[in-house]
Design a protein around this nucleic acid. Structure first.
Lengths: 130, 130
DNA sequence: GTAATAGTTAAAGTGAACTTTAAGTCAAGA
DNA sequence: TCTTGACTTAAAGTTCACTTTAACTATTAC
């Protein structure tokens, strides 16, 4: 019930405490309660951080994460703007997956023969581009 | 036969000429021939740039691209080290694809109801993690 | 001839996402 | 008590991938 310190959270998710303070200042991690001025986190923060890390690996910026997960009240005129971002990110994700599949094939080729160079790979990527 | 100028290449691939000079200095784009001191590129450079851009979208750093596509002669002791990188990148790519699928589902949820927040998403991501 | 346009280099500047530093607080253990 | 370790803040520093700037050259249009 006491909560996790910043160091414990950092250890569990594999980041530095300073990164967690940065996420808080950047508005993608809510400020937790304090004990003697020190942050005490609920375990649910671990799930939230998993999402943040996943989103980052997929190329989402901190600003986009903030908009996507907290932005629907801040997207002032209409939450439409925020939904538009979600939609366009969906499309980007689908393109990312397709490209990742193609890159996988290229890496497998490299693994096989070791004689592939950028130019040959270009041919591989050329058909059915993007 | 005359070749493409840096500006023409930049226009076609949608980057600034300075980016191409940077790639060259970073060792991921070979120095082309010169005419009056100016770079003249072969059309094959367009394929190479397509790969570079794809690799970057997938989270590869410039250093990794250099090692993966040009590193097999520089990986001095054995090109095994470089093949190991290709293998580990393959594994990372597969993880990336899985995460992208999951993130897609999350964004679809967001799109549907607009009431999702980071904490609820955490639950979504929790089952069958990573 | 001269002005505009596109290229050249080296070096400094930029934005994103953190990290490090400096100076301080707080609680537990010897 | 005092020192060790983990926390606090604000501000400066770092890395990556470029971009911008400054000073210059070369080609084309008038």
């Amino acid at each position: 019930m006491e909560g996790l310190t910043i160091g414990e959270v950092a250890n569990r998710v594999g980041v530095q405490p300073s990164a967690l303070r940065y996420y808080e200042s950047a508005g993608i991690l809510e400020a937790p309660r304090r004990v003697n001025g020190q942050r005490r986190y609920d375990v649910t923060v671990l799930n939230q951080l998993a999402i943040i890390q996943t989103a980052q690996r997929l190329g989402f910026t901190v600003a986009e994460i903030r908009t996507l997960f907290y932005g629907f009240e801040a997207a002032t005129p209409a939450s439409t703007r925020w939904q538009t971002l979600a939609q366009s990110k969906l499309i980007e994700l689908e393109a990312l997956i397709r490209q990742a599949q193609k890159m996988k094939e290229m890496l497998k080729e490299i693994e096989k023969c070791g004689c592939l160079n950028l130019e040959e790979c270009g041919q591989l990527l050329k058909q059915s581009d993007n």
